[in-house]
Simulated scan of single mutants.
Amino acid sequence: MASGARQRALAAEIRDARKKSGWEAQAVAQRLGWSKATMSRVESGARAITEADLAAILAIIGVTGTERDRLLGMAHDLHQPGWWESRATAGLPAQLTAVLGFEREALRITELTLALVPGLLQTADYARAVMSGGGVPAPEADARVAVRVGRQEVITRRRAPVELTALIDEGALLRPVGTPGVMADQVHRLISIGKRTNVTIQVLPFGVHPGIDGPFLFYEFAKAPSIVHVEHHSASAFLDEPEDVSAYDALRSTVLAAALSAVESAELLATYARDWEGRGT
């Protein structure tokens, strides 16, 4: 099954390459024996494309050499399973599989969390405690923890790590998840990962703030349109309509303005780390 993020990214690349070549979409479609609507669906990411069809498009518009190889490689990867689909973590909910794909393809991610530390920043012990408290059976919890920890590779990988901005409600730092030792380790993890140049952690202080209505994830891609993921107790959804994305983009800016700076947040995190360490003695 093709990754939605990969398909959207390739679609944007095809559209850019075609425009740079000076070809009109309808002219390319005619050469291929396609309708203009089919070409439009390919360039919007609504229709997956085979390597053979992409090779034909590239031949028509004159893309050769390393750029041709790069784009054909992207088409090949469309139907390759991600690591989460090829290991013991197969069978994940479709929504989570989509989240994992978007995380790997995103250029930037902004995440607002209220009750818990963001999944991309959780320690294994913290994640396990979250699942245990939620009634997840131990064997299943182990697989989910492996997925959650594995997801974090997107911010630590050497090549083009994702730029992450984590907006964390202060309540998540005070809420006990697991033992005081688990909490102390988790807060120290936030302090440590926050020193990376691609990670910004900002705390939303106690009180009513613009993000109080609910958490969200805002994904930005190099060329494909942005996507928002919202999740509640009984449902979750991906929003990609321009008006919805624009609304969350504005909300993101408002929440960022209400949050403590990265420096102030680091100082507050240090205070919570000492507090949790003190509770463990």
Rank of each mutant, 00 (worst) to 15 (best):
M1Y: 06
M1A: 10
S3V: 01
Q7K: 15
R8I: 00
A9C: 02
L10D: 00
A11D: 02
A12Q: 05
I14N: 01
R15Y: 06
R18A: 00
R18Q: 01
K19I: 10
K20R: 15
A29R: 08
L32D: 07
K36W: 01
T38R: 11
M39K: 00
M39E: 03
E43G: 06
G45Y: 04
A48C: 00
D53V: 03
D53A: 04
A55E: 12
I57W: 01
I60G: 02
T64C: 05
E67R: 15
L71A: 02
M74D: 08
A75Y: 03
H76Q: 12
H76N: 01
D77M: 05
Q80S: 08
W83L: 11
W84F: 03
E103F: 00
E105W: 09
A106D: 04
R108I: 03
I109R: 03
E111Q: 14
T113D: 04
L116T: 08
A124P: 14
R128Q: 12
M131P: 06
V136M: 13
V136G: 03
V136D: 05
A138N: 05
P139S: 01
V145D: 06
A146G: 14
V147C: 08
V154T: 10
T156C: 01
R159F: 04
P161H: 02
E170Q: 15
E170R: 15
R175K: 11
P180E: 02
D185Q: 14
D185P: 04
V187R: 03
H188S: 13
I193D: 11
K195H: 12
R196M: 07
N198M: 11
I201W: 04
L204D: 07
L204F: 09
P205E: 09
H209E: 07
G214C: 07
F216R: 11
E220F: 02
F221Q: 03
S226V: 05
I227D: 00
H232W: 10
H233R: 15
A235N: 13
A235S: 15
A237S: 14
V245G: 06
A247G: 11
D249Q: 15
L256G: 02
A262P: 12
L269S: 03
L269M: 14
A270T: 15
W276P: 12
G280D: 14
G280A: 15
